[in-house]
Deep mutational scan, measured.
Amino acid sequence: LQLFIKTLTGKTSTVEMEPSDTIENLKAKIQDKEGIPPDQQRLIFAGKQLEDGRTLSDYNIQKESTLHLVL
């Protein structure tokens, strides 16, 4: 599924993920695209901070969801 990652600067990146992927996997993919180390990334979806060990489906993240990346 395609996700949009929006940064505080207003920049939006697109990443392709599976519902079974963990937040950790997602942060690794963001690191590949943006060069931001996972330990500096905080991802927010629906007002919640996402935890590394959980999966996208745990948070009911659907295709074309927008996640907010806070550093």
Results as ranks from 00 to 15, higher is better:
Thr12Gln: 07
Gly10Asn: 05
Ile44Phe: 15
Glu24Gln: 12
Ser13Lys: 07
Asp52Leu: 06
Thr12His: 06
Asn25Ala: 14
Gly53Val: 07
Gly53Tyr: 11
Gly47Cys: 05
Leu56Glu: 00
Thr12Trp: 12
Gly35Phe: 04
Thr22His: 04
Leu69Tyr: 02
His68Leu: 15
Lys63Arg: 12
Ile5Gln: 00
Glu16Leu: 14
Lys48Tyr: 10
Arg54Thr: 06
Gly35Val: 02
Gly53Cys: 06
Leu71Phe: 10
Gln2Asp: 04
Thr12Ile: 14
Thr7Ile: 12
Met17Tyr: 12
Glu51Val: 06
Ile30Gly: 02
Gly53Arg: 09
Lys11Gln: 10
Gly10Ile: 03
Asp58Cys: 03
Gln62Val: 14
Glu51Ser: 07
Asp32Ala: 13
Gln62Asp: 08
Tyr59Ala: 02
Ile61Ser: 02
Ile36Phe: 12
Glu24Trp: 14
Lys29Asp: 02
Asp21His: 05
Asp39Leu: 09
Phe45Gly: 01
Glu24Cys: 06
Asp21Gln: 07
Thr7Asp: 11
Gln41Pro: 01
Lys63Asp: 15
Ile44Trp: 15
Gln2Asn: 10
Leu26Asn: 01
Glu34Met: 15
Leu43Met: 03
Lys27Tyr: 03
Ile5Val: 07
Lys11His: 12
Leu50Phe: 01
Pro19Tyr: 09
Leu26Trp: 00
Thr66Gln: 06
Ile23Asn: 00
Asp39His: 13
Ile44His: 09
Pro37Asp: 07
Pro19Met: 09
Gln62Lys: 12
Lys33Tyr: 08
Thr22Ala: 03
Glu18Ser: 13
Glu24Gly: 13
Glu24Lys: 12
Lys11Asn: 10
Lys33Phe: 09
Thr66Ile: 14
Gln40Leu: 11
Val15Met: 09
Gln62Gly: 13
Thr22Cys: 03
Asp32Cys: 06
Ile61Gly: 02
Ile44Ser: 09
Pro19Phe: 09
Asp39Asn: 11
Gln62Cys: 05
Asn25Lys: 14
Asp32Val: 13
Leu56Gly: 01
Thr22Glu: 02
Glu51Thr: 05
Leu3Ile: 13
Thr7Phe: 15
Val70Gln: 08
Thr22Phe: 06
Gln31Met: 13
Lys29Gly: 03
Phe4Leu: 08
Gln40Trp: 09
Asp32Gly: 09
Arg42Phe: 12
Pro37Leu: 06
Arg54Pro: 04
Gln49Lys: 09
Glu51Asn: 06
Ser65His: 06
Glu18Lys: 13
Gly35Glu: 03
Val70Lys: 06
Ile36Asn: 03
Lys63Cys: 06
Leu3Asp: 01
Asn60Tyr: 06
Asn60Thr: 05
Gly35Lys: 06
Lys63Met: 13
Glu24Pro: 02
Thr9Leu: 10
Met17Thr: 04
Glu16Tyr: 15
Pro19Arg: 08
Leu71Ile: 13
Asn25His: 13
Asp58Trp: 13
Lys48Trp: 08
Met17Trp: 09
Ile44Arg: 04
Ile61His: 02
Thr12Phe: 11
Ile44Cys: 10
Tyr59Pro: 00
Glu64Ala: 11
Ala46Ser: 09
Lys48Arg: 11
Lys63Val: 07
Ile5Arg: 00
Gly10Lys: 03
Phe45His: 06
Leu67Ile: 15
Thr7Pro: 05
Asn25Trp: 10
Lys6Ile: 14
Pro37Lys: 07
Lys29Asn: 04
Phe45Asn: 02
Pro19Gln: 08
Ala46His: 13
Lys11Thr: 10
Phe4Ser: 06
Lys27Met: 05
Asp21Asn: 06
Asp52Ser: 07
Ile36Cys: 04
Ala46Arg: 14
Leu8Met: 13
Ser13Ile: 15
Val15Ile: 14
Ser13Gln: 11
Leu1His: 04
Ile44Asp: 04
Leu43Gln: 00
Pro38Ile: 15
Gln2Trp: 11
Gln40Cys: 08
Lys11Ala: 10
Val70Pro: 01
Gln40Tyr: 09
Leu67Val: 13
Lys11Gly: 10
Gln62Ser: 11
Asn25Arg: 13
Gly10Ala: 03
Ser65Ala: 11
Gly10Ser: 03
Glu16Ala: 10
Thr14Lys: 10
Leu26Gly: 00
Arg42Asp: 06
Ala28Pro: 00
Ser13Met: 15
Lys27Asp: 00
Arg42Met: 14
Lys33Leu: 15
Leu43Asp: 01
Ile23Arg: 00
Gln41Tyr: 14
Leu67Gly: 01
Ile5Trp: 03
Ser20Ile: 05
Ile61Lys: 01
Lys48Gln: 14
Glu24Ile: 10
Val70Phe: 14
Ala28Val: 11
Leu67Tyr: 03
Leu71Tyr: 10
Thr9Pro: 05
Asp39Ala: 12
Arg54Lys: 12
Tyr59Glu: 02
Ile61Val: 08
Ile44Tyr: 15
Val70Ala: 07
Leu43Arg: 00
Glu34Ile: 15
Leu3Ser: 01
Lys33Asp: 06
Pro37Phe: 05
Gln31Ile: 03
Ser57Ile: 09
Glu24His: 10
His68Arg: 07
Gln2Lys: 15
Thr7Ser: 10
Thr55Gly: 03
Leu71Pro: 09
Ser20Asn: 12
Pro38Gln: 13
His68Lys: 07
Glu51Ala: 08
Thr14Ala: 09
Ala28Leu: 15
Asp32Thr: 10
Thr12Ser: 07
Ile44Val: 09
Ser65Asp: 14
Arg42Gly: 05
Gln31Lys: 09
Glu16Gln: 11
Glu34Lys: 07
Ile44Gln: 06
Leu3Gln: 02
Ile36His: 11
Lys6Met: 12
Gly10Glu: 03
Gln62Tyr: 09
Leu50His: 00
Thr22Ile: 04
Pro38Met: 15
Glu64Asp: 14
Gly53Ile: 07
Val15Cys: 03
Asn60Gly: 14
Lys29Ile: 09
Leu43Ile: 13
Leu56Trp: 02
Glu18Thr: 09
Ile30Asp: 01
Ser65Ile: 05
Asp39Ile: 09
Gly35Met: 05
Glu64Val: 06
Ile44Met: 12
Ala46Lys: 14
Ile5Ala: 00
Gln41Lys: 01
Pro19Asn: 06
Arg54Glu: 04
Asn60Val: 04
Gln31Arg: 13
Asp39Pro: 06
Glu24Thr: 08
Gly35Pro: 02
Val15Ser: 00
Phe45Ile: 04
Leu69Trp: 02
Leu43Trp: 06
Leu56Asn: 01
Thr55Asn: 05
Asn25Phe: 12
Asn60Cys: 05
Leu71Thr: 09
Tyr59Gln: 03
Ser20Gln: 10
Lys48Ala: 09
Glu51Met: 10
Asn25Leu: 14
Lys27Val: 02
Thr66Asp: 03
Thr55Met: 10
Pro38Asp: 04
Asp21Trp: 06
Leu3Asn: 01
Gln40Phe: 09
Thr7Leu: 15
Ile36Asp: 02
Val15Leu: 12
Leu67Trp: 02
Thr22Arg: 07
Tyr59Asn: 02
Met17Asp: 00
Ile30Trp: 02
Pro38Lys: 15
Leu69Asn: 00
Ala46Thr: 05
Gln49Cys: 10
Glu24Arg: 13
Gln49Glu: 15
Gln31Val: 04
Leu43Thr: 00
Arg42Ile: 15
Gly10Met: 04
Ile5Asn: 00
Ala46Met: 14
Lys33Cys: 06
Gly35Asn: 07
Gln2Met: 14
Leu8Tyr: 13
Lys33Gly: 06
Lys29Phe: 06
Gln49His: 10
Asp52Val: 06
Lys33Glu: 08
Glu16Cys: 12
Ile30Leu: 09
Leu69Met: 07
Lys33Pro: 02
Asp39Arg: 10
Leu8His: 14
Arg54Leu: 12
Asp21Leu: 03
Asn60Pro: 04
Val70Ser: 09
Ser13Trp: 15
Asp39Met: 09
Pro37Tyr: 05
Gln31Gly: 09
Leu8Asn: 13
Leu26Ser: 00
Gly35His: 07
Glu34Leu: 15
Gln31Ser: 12
Val15Lys: 02
Lys29Gln: 06
Asp21Glu: 07
Glu51Gly: 04
Arg42Tyr: 12
His68Asp: 07
Lys29Pro: 00
Pro19Cys: 05
Leu26Gln: 02
Arg42His: 13
Glu16Val: 12
Leu8Cys: 14
Glu34Ser: 12
Ile23Pro: 01
Leu26Ile: 07
Ala46Glu: 15
Gly10Arg: 03
Ile23Ser: 00
Thr7Lys: 07
Leu50Glu: 00
Leu69Gln: 02
His68Gly: 04
Ile5Gly: 00
Glu64Ser: 11
Gln40Glu: 11
Thr66Pro: 02
Thr7Met: 15
Ile61Arg: 01
Ile30Arg: 00
Asn60Met: 08
Arg42Glu: 08
His68Tyr: 15
Gln62Phe: 09
Leu1Ala: 04
Glu18Trp: 13
Thr12Asp: 04
Gly53Asp: 12
Asn25Ile: 12
Phe4Pro: 02
Glu16Met: 13
Pro37Val: 05
Gln31Asn: 09
Gln41Thr: 06
Thr22Trp: 04
Gln62Ala: 10
Ile36Glu: 02
Gln41Ile: 13
Glu18Arg: 14
Leu26Phe: 03
Ile5Phe: 05
Leu8Gln: 14
Asn60Asp: 08
Ser13Pro: 02
Leu3Lys: 00
Lys6Trp: 09
Met17Ala: 13
Ile61Trp: 03
Ile30His: 00
Ile61Ala: 02
Leu67His: 01
Ile61Phe: 06
Ile61Cys: 01
Glu24Leu: 14
Gln41Trp: 08
Pro38Val: 15
Ile61Gln: 01
Ser20Pro: 03
Leu67Asp: 00
Pro19His: 07
Thr66His: 13
Glu51His: 08
Leu67Cys: 01
Arg42Leu: 14
Gln2Val: 15
Pro37Asn: 07
Gly10Pro: 02
His68Glu: 11
Pro37Arg: 08
Asp58Gly: 04
Gln62Met: 12
Ser13Gly: 05
Lys48Thr: 13
Leu3Trp: 02
Thr14Pro: 05
Leu43Gly: 00
Leu56Lys: 01
Gly53Asn: 12
Arg42Pro: 00
Lys63Gln: 14
Ser57Met: 12
Ser57Pro: 03
Ile36Thr: 06
Val70Arg: 08
Ile23His: 00
Phe4Lys: 07
Gln31Pro: 01
Lys6Cys: 09
Glu18Gly: 08
Leu56His: 01
Pro38Cys: 08
Ser13Val: 15
Gly10Gln: 03
Phe4Asn: 08
Thr9Gly: 13
Gly53His: 14
Lys48Met: 13
Leu1Val: 10
Asp52Ile: 06
Lys48Asp: 06
Asp52Asn: 11
Tyr59Val: 02
Met17Phe: 11
Arg54Cys: 08
Ser20Gly: 12
Glu64Thr: 08
